[in-house]
């Protein structure tokens, strides 16, 4: 049986998520053995044309050129996996969605006329059909490995959508919010990172985006009691997943209060 071919694509992003593939140091040889890496500019200049069995797509759609390129990628991909907060919700650059893009362009670039950009930064799934999404800024490399392993044997990958709290309890981390009064987005954030930040006594900052049924208002009311000012709450919800519908809706409401 021929090895499935893999292509890795980049849109507006920092490359951190696709580098997770190379960061799989112990497993990299087995990965390379199991799949045929046909297009992955971060790793090799060798390139083979499509179609590809699997495409990993990193980054968000921010330019008119992106709009056509993502359609081309979709057309030559069997399975399309969006990886990371940029590709799944629009990323931190989706902060532009709340502001005037023309003003940004005028302030940042000496010759704004050369800049062709969209007013918004949006997720891959807003433009084409996405078969699977890996959340996170960055993604968890073991979730990526899980996807590769599952694909190779034809099973459904295990990708949790419940809250980060489950992972804290699983690893025996005591709750930073209950025990230390630290504001934490864990109860409304999707698991998958392994609950890294609370293990270092930090509150979760929501880089995996909303969990399957986030109750943002209830957590916000509790943050009020912890003494977090509403503008700080709004900022906490407006980071890597600012454009995720539940975070966007709630933060917009709180900002208008």
């Amino acid at each position: 049986m021929a090895k499935p071919s893999l292509a890795v694509w980049k849109f507006a992003s920092c490359d951190g998520c696709q580098l997770s593939l190379l960061d799989l140091e112990d497993e990299l040889l087995a990965v390379a053995d199991g799949i045929d890496i046909a297009h992955f500019p971060e790793a090799t200049t060798a390139h083979r044309g499509g179609p590809y069995d699997v495409s990993l797509v990193e980054g968000s759609i921010t330019t008119p050129a992106d709009l056509t390129r993502i359609q081309e990628i979709r057309a030559q991909s069997g399975m399309l996996v969006a990886i990371g907060a940029c590709a799944t919700t629009g990323g931190i650059q989706a902060l532009r969605n709340l502001a005037d893009i023309d003003e940004f362009v005028r302030v940042v670039y000496a010759r704004p006329a050369y800049i062709q950009t969209l007013a918004t930064s949006t997720a891959i799934a807003d433009h084409v059909k996405v078969d699977l999404e890996l959340a996170g800024c960055p993604i968890n490399k073991y979730q990526l490995l899980e996807v590769v392993q599952a694909l190779l044997v034809g099973r459904k990958p295990t990708l949790p959508t419940y809250s980060v709290c489950v992972e804290c309890k699983e690893r025996g981390t005591s709750c930073v919010m209950v025990a230390d009064g630290v504001a934490c987005l864990g109860p409304i954030t999707r698991a998958g990172c392994g609950a890294i930040c609370p293990a270092f006594a930090r509150g979760c900052y929501g880089c995996f985006g909303p969990s399957e049924s986030p109750n943002v208002d209830s957590l916000a009311a509790w943050w009020d009691e912890l003494g977090v000012a509403r503008p700080d709450l709004v900022r906490a919800l407006r980071t890597f997943n600012v454009n995720a519908p539940q975070f966007k809706e709630a933060s917009t409401r709180y900002a208008q209060e």
């Binding site: 419940y162 809250s163 709290c165 489950v166 309890k169 699983e170 709750c175 864990g186 109860p187 409304i188 969990s211 399957e212 049924s213 986030p214 109750n215 208002d217 209830s218 957590l219």
Partner: peptide
């Protein structure tokens, strides 16, 4: 209960 429950599962874990 909808107004308060986070469905975070902490109660069942502890």
């Amino acid at each position: 209960i909808v107004e308060r429950c986070l469905t975070c599962a902490n109660c069942t874990m502890v």
